[in-house]
Simulated assay, not measured.
Amino acid sequence: MTALVEVKGLSKVFDVSAPWLNRVVEGKPRQFVHAVDGVSFEIERGKTLALVGESGCGKSTVARLLVGLYGPTAGEVRFDGEDTAAVLKSPRARALRKRMQMIFQDPYASLNPRWRVRDIVGEPLREHGLISDAGGIEDKVADLLQSVGLAAADVQKFPHQFSGGQRQRISIARALATQPEFLVCDEPTSALDVSVQAQVLNIMKDLQRERGLTYLFISHNLAVVRHVADEVGVMYLGRLVEQAPKRQLFEAPRHPYTRMLLDAIPDIQMTGRARTPVQGEVPNPLNPPTGCAFHPRCPHANARCSSERPELRTIGGIRVSCHAVEEGRL
């Protein structure tokens, strides 16, 4: 199958320097953060790729780069064979935006509290000129709400009249309004209770099956990822360190960081397997370690790891960036 989304060498650098006058007076240099550093992956049509990693590893920046909220510093994002950065600067930008939508992390912040649900979910319909008359928009919004498990009568309500899980369903209905092919989901359930998370995830899986949707799913919760993903990519300090089909990644993780993340999940089955919780802290992104960024926390690190940055290579059907795996030390 051909990939719907192709990401090649994607990088994003943010200038986080102090203001010019402060730098002159205090003699400080300019500072840059490599939020995303040479990330490459593909997502097949109708499949879900999940990106996981600790806070600050660049997952949400990747999400924003894919939908064009940020412009890349280097590399490219191709959607259905076309460079999205070029299309978004052309007259065809609106047609592309219609085909890809985003669900944001916080359902309390992503909905306008002064608008009724009819206006929130109906905005993409008006913006893209899909439906112009008020009655048609209200009928379509009612249909969209019912598709995510809400009542048609909810079109008249305001966001404050809903729970967190219901608000996230409204966000999903809004994202589906333009009938997109690709949804970027930036931790869509992290602000919700566990029982509500399951309901929202099941709705998303059902919608994917019915509409053939393609998802990029951003999360730090591996239990959620296990439920929704086909492929899993593990990020660390702006780089992709491992990518594998879900079953392979959970049953036989290769990268030491992936192993540490999986070992941190509570062992409900009481298997008695030896476990190593995640050690140490994520390094300061303003001053990342030399060589492999994970080497200060890695139990298998040697001199090569601290001096030479590993490349992402395909080893046994899994893409992994680790000298220890490459040399057979793991």
Rank of each mutant, 00 (worst) to 15 (best):
E26M: 15
D206C: 10
V278Q: 08
M1C: 10
Y70P: 00
K140H: 11
A223E: 11
P91T: 14
Q156W: 14
R114N: 09
V196T: 07
P289C: 03
G233P: 00
S163M: 10
I172E: 02
G68S: 08
V5D: 04
C322W: 00
K89L: 11
R167H: 05
P266N: 08
F104Q: 03
S195N: 13
D263Y: 04
K47W: 01
L21N: 08
L51E: 02
T258L: 05
N284H: 05
W20A: 13
I265K: 04
A109N: 13
A109L: 10
G81S: 06
R99G: 06
A3P: 10
R319G: 08
G58H: 04
E187M: 08
V200W: 02
Y70H: 09
T61M: 05
Q168C: 11
V33D: 11
E251M: 13
S60Q: 12
G164D: 05
L240Q: 02
L261C: 08
D133C: 07
I218D: 00
F79G: 01
R304D: 11
M102T: 02
L216W: 00
P124Y: 03
G53Y: 00
I268T: 15
H34N: 14
G317D: 15
A293H: 06
P288D: 05
L150V: 04
F250C: 04
G136L: 09
L201E: 06
A175E: 00
V121P: 10
E123D: 08
S147W: 07
L201G: 03
V62S: 03
T48H: 04
R23Q: 15
Y108R: 12
F158W: 13
M1A: 14
S110Y: 06
V320W: 01
S11P: 03
M102D: 04
I120L: 15
F41Q: 03
V7K: 01
G272H: 07
